[in-house]
Simulated assay, not measured.
Amino acid sequence: METLKIVKIGGNIINDENDLANFLDDFAKLASPKILVHGGGKSATKLAQQMNIEVQIKDGRRITNADTLDIITMVYAGKINKTIVATLQAKNTNAIGLSGADGNSIVSKKRAVTTIDYGFVGDIQKVNIHTLKLLLNQNITPVFCAITHDKNGQLLNTNADTVASELAIAFTNEYTTELYYCFEKNGVLENVNDSDSVIEKIDSKNYQNLLKSNIITDGMLPKLANCFHAVTHQVQKIHIGKYAMLLDKNLKHTTIQK
Rank of each mutant, 00 (worst) to 15 (best):
A112V: 08
P222G: 12
A86K: 02
T254W: 12
M1E: 07
K151S: 13
V235E: 09
G119R: 04
P222D: 00
Q49N: 14
V163H: 00
S99E: 04
L221S: 08
T177D: 07
T232Y: 03
Q50D: 13
N173V: 01
S32G: 14
T87P: 00
L36M: 03
M51C: 15
R62Q: 03
A95I: 05
L211P: 00
A28V: 09
H253M: 07
P142F: 11
F120M: 13
I216L: 07
T176E: 13
D196G: 11
S32T: 05
V198E: 04
A112C: 13
N250Y: 07
H253I: 07
K109S: 02
I84D: 02
I53M: 12
A244T: 10
L24V: 08
V75K: 03
E166C: 14
L156Y: 00
C145L: 03
V75F: 07
D25A: 03
L20K: 01
D67V: 09
E54L: 13
N191C: 08
K8Y: 00
H229C: 07
I169T: 07
L47T: 04
I106F: 05
Q49W: 12
N52D: 15
D194E: 10
E190D: 04
D67L: 15
L156P: 09
V85S: 05
T3E: 02
K42M: 15
L221E: 03
Y175R: 10
I53C: 11
I35A: 02
L189R: 08
L98H: 04
I169K: 10
R62D: 08
S99K: 02
V7A: 06
S43A: 15
V192C: 15
P142E: 01
I129M: 10
M245I: 11
E2P: 09
V113I: 10
Q56M: 10
T45C: 14
K185A: 14
Y180T: 00
I63T: 04
T3K: 12
N18S: 10
A95H: 02
V231H: 06
K82Y: 05
K151C: 10
K237P: 08
N250E: 11
A230M: 02
N173L: 15
N104M: 10
D25H: 12
G122L: 14
N159L: 05
M74D: 01
I106C: 01
R111A: 06
Q50V: 11
K110Q: 06
T232P: 03
A44N: 11
H239V: 12
G11E: 01
G97I: 06
